[in-house]
Measured scan of single mutants.
Amino acid sequence: MAAGGDHGSPDSYRSPLASRYASPEMCFVFSDRYKFRTWRQLWLWLAEAEQTLGLPITDEQIQEMKSNLENIDFKMAAEEEKRLRHDVMAHVHTFGHCCPKAAGIIHLGATSCYVGDNTDLIILRNALDLLLPKLARVISRLADFAKERASLPTLGFTHFQPAQLTTVGKRCCLWIQDLCMDLQNLKRVRDDLRFRGVKGTTGTQASFLQLFEGDDHKVEQLDKMVTEKAGFKRAFIITGQTYTRKVDIEVLSVLASLGASVHKICTDIRLLANLKEMEEPFEKQQIGSSAMPYKRNPMRSERCCSLARHLMTLVMDPLQTASVQWFERTLDDSANRRICLAEAFLTADTILNTLQNISEGLVVYPKVIERRIRQELPFMATENIIMAMVKAGGSRQDCHEKIRVLSQQAASVVKQEGGDNDLIERIQVDAYFSPIHSQLDHLLDPSSFTGRASQQVQRFLEEEVYPLLKPYESVMKVKAELCL
């Protein structure tokens, strides 16, 4: 049975990233139509530049190519590739079939990587351009969430054990800070992308030097003109047959890092959902379990974690691919890159769409948070109580021993009897502590235990987050809708 299948058929496997999760716009960027249309555009740009620099290419040939950029006979191309065992030459023939007058000058002087690699770089750039505003929107939604809850005390956790208090907004800023680093890295790697350009079979530009009869300047002009037509500021000066596969490492490393950030955020949300302090959106008709109707599973956060793990592992592909590119190139890269580049971007696209949807509907339960604080705060307040007693004339050592005994009794009630923490009640009825009984409410005010959390939130948002989001103001209103 021949390899390949009808990918629109229910009898043929289709990647869930495309069929179930990723956005239509990201799927289109990695589609065959987008790819092969870009090949034709690159052939047109090459012909236009070659004509401008004096090669015998007519206006009629150029116009014929322009008129057929979208006229792609995919069936013919597939048949040609089956016959020739070469995808680029299959599309040269297919393009030439609908451009008979231009057929002889299509791909003039070029090698397969002229269309293959340059198209990949265009796709990487455009895919990054799709991700950047999506990530900015996630940051914006979380920034709104953090600002609104900047002063809401909550129990902090280290080692997932109760620690000092923080605020809900401050905790959210930990998430935002990681995503801001990801946004900066995505922008950097996007701006650092260079075009492969017009380089020939081993990167020496020998074929173009021959076409222009040894004119170095025209060869350099050709490279520059096509690079500018493709919208790049610069091209690699040095290439082998391909652009260095280190570029793929750079791009997928940034995406993998984004995956790590999203995994951490969504894990926190899942843990908070278990504590009943916070939940992701839950639709009115949504079913959490087929057997347990009360369940409210954090399905979206779980999906993000599941896909983020996949995204983090994909960076190993370009690392290994770059390491086995012998001399000017081997074909070890080809099949692998067809999979890992598309999957990385479709996965990143999915987790950003999902995280935006989550961040637009996060639900906080202040009463649950308050109750958990009441359970733990008495123990945390013991040092403040000791200091207040010393100020009232008591002995630190005597007070410490009193607190120690009462704390152990209260802990026994919590752990052995399943009761509430009654340390404060014990202190309130103990005559030894009568000098500070009137101060206990103040000493137990949760806001006095959150330090500068709310001020940190305000400063972080104003100095770091809002300036970073400013270039994306025009796209901030787009909502994230999930079908599944």
Results as ranks from 00 to 15, higher is better:
Gly4Cys: 15
Gly5Ser: 12
Gly5Ile: 14
Asp6Phe: 08
His7Pro: 12
Ser9Leu: 14
Pro10Thr: 15
Ala18Gly: 15
Ser23Arg: 10
Asp32Arg: 13
Arg37Glu: 11
Arg40Met: 00
Gln41Ile: 10
Leu42Val: 14
Trp43Asp: 01
Leu46Asp: 01
Ala47Trp: 02
Ala47Ile: 02
Glu48Gln: 09
Glu50Arg: 00
Leu53Tyr: 06
Gly54Trp: 04
Thr58Arg: 14
Thr58Gly: 09
Asp59Arg: 10
Ile62Gln: 06
Gln63Asn: 11
Lys66His: 11
Leu69Trp: 12
Ile72Glu: 10
Asp73Pro: 13
Phe74Lys: 13
Met76Gln: 15
Glu79Gln: 12
Glu80Ser: 14
Glu80Leu: 07
Lys82Pro: 14
Arg85Phe: 09
Arg85Ala: 01
His86Thr: 01
Val88Leu: 10
His93Val: 14
His93Asp: 12
Thr94Trp: 07
Thr94Tyr: 08
Phe95Cys: 05
Gly96Trp: 02
Pro100Glu: 11
Ala102Leu: 07
Ala103Glu: 09
Gly104Asn: 11
Gly104Gln: 13
Gly109Glu: 01
Thr111Pro: 02
Ser112Gly: 06
Val115Asn: 04
Asp117Trp: 00
Asn118Met: 00
Ile123Tyr: 00
Arg125Ile: 05
Leu128Trp: 03
Asp129Asn: 12
Asp129Arg: 09
Ala136Thr: 15
Asp144Met: 15
Phe145Trp: 11
Arg149Pro: 01
Ala150Pro: 03
Leu152Val: 10
Leu152Asn: 10
Thr154Phe: 07
Leu155Asn: 01
Thr158Leu: 03
His159Phe: 02
His159Met: 03
Pro162Trp: 08
Pro162Thr: 05
Pro162Cys: 08
Gln164Phe: 07
Val168Gln: 05
Gly169Phe: 01
Gly169Met: 03
Arg171Glu: 02
Arg171Gln: 00
Arg171Leu: 02
Trp175Arg: 01
Gln177Ile: 14
Leu179Gln: 05
Cys180Phe: 04
Leu183Arg: 04
Leu183Thr: 14
Asn185Val: 06
Leu186Asp: 02
Arg188Asp: 07
Val189Asp: 07
Asp192Asn: 10
Leu193Arg: 03
Arg194Lys: 13
Arg194Gln: 10
Val198Gln: 03
Val198Arg: 02
Thr201Asp: 02
Gly203Trp: 00
Gln205Ile: 05
Ala206His: 11
Phe208Trp: 03
Phe212Trp: 11
Asp215His: 11
Leu222Lys: 04
Leu222Thr: 05
Lys224Gln: 08
Lys233Val: 12
Ile238Glu: 04
Gly240Val: 02
Gln241Gly: 01
Gln241Tyr: 00
Gln241Lys: 03
Tyr243Asn: 09
Thr244His: 15
Thr244Gly: 12
Lys246Ile: 01
Asp248Trp: 03
Glu250His: 08
Glu250Gly: 14
Glu250Ile: 07
Val254Asp: 09
Ala256Arg: 03
Ser257Lys: 07
Leu258Lys: 06
His263Trp: 04
Lys264Gly: 04
Thr267Trp: 01
Thr267Asp: 04
Leu271Met: 07
Leu272Thr: 06
Lys276Ser: 05
Glu280Met: 00
Glu283Gly: 12
Lys284Val: 12
Lys284Asp: 13
Ile287Tyr: 02
Ile287Lys: 02
Ile287Pro: 01
Gly288Arg: 01
Ser289Met: 03
Ser290Thr: 10
Met292His: 03
Pro293Lys: 02
Lys295Val: 01
Ser301Pro: 05
Cys304Leu: 15
Ser306Leu: 01
Ala308Asp: 01
Arg309Asp: 03
His310Ser: 09
Leu311Asn: 00
Leu314Asn: 08
Asp317Leu: 06
Asp317Met: 08
Pro318Trp: 06
Leu319Val: 08
Leu319Ile: 13
Gln320Arg: 03
Gln320His: 09
Ala322Gln: 12
Ala322Tyr: 13
Val324Tyr: 08
Trp326Ser: 05
Glu328Gly: 05
Arg329Pro: 00
Arg329Thr: 01
Thr330Ala: 13
Thr330Ser: 10
Leu331Val: 09
Ser334His: 07
Ala335Pro: 08
Arg337Gln: 03
Ala342Glu: 07
Glu343Val: 05
Thr350Phe: 05
Ile351Gly: 02
Ile351Asn: 02
Leu352Cys: 08
Asn353Ser: 14
Val363Pro: 06
Tyr365Ser: 09
Val368Leu: 04
Glu370Lys: 08
Arg371Met: 03
Ile373Met: 10
Glu376Val: 05
Glu376Ser: 02
Pro378Glu: 04
Met380Asn: 07
Ala381Tyr: 09
Ile385Asp: 04
Val390Ser: 07
Val390Pro: 05
Val390Gly: 06
Ala392His: 12
Arg396Val: 05
Arg396Gly: 03
Gln397Ile: 08
Arg404Ile: 04
Arg404Cys: 12
Arg404Gln: 09
Leu406His: 15
Ala410Asn: 04
Val414Arg: 05
Glu417Pro: 03
Asp420Asn: 06
Glu425Val: 08
Arg426Trp: 08
Gln428Ala: 09
Phe433Ala: 06
Pro435Val: 07
Ser438Trp: 08
Asp445Pro: 04
Pro446Val: 04
Ser447Asn: 13
Ser448Cys: 14
Ser448Pro: 12
Phe449Met: 04
Phe449Glu: 05
Phe449Trp: 06
Ala453Leu: 03
Gln458Asn: 11
Glu462Lys: 06
Glu464Thr: 11
Val465Tyr: 03
Val465Ala: 10
Leu468Asn: 14
Leu468Gly: 09
Lys470Cys: 14
Pro471His: 15
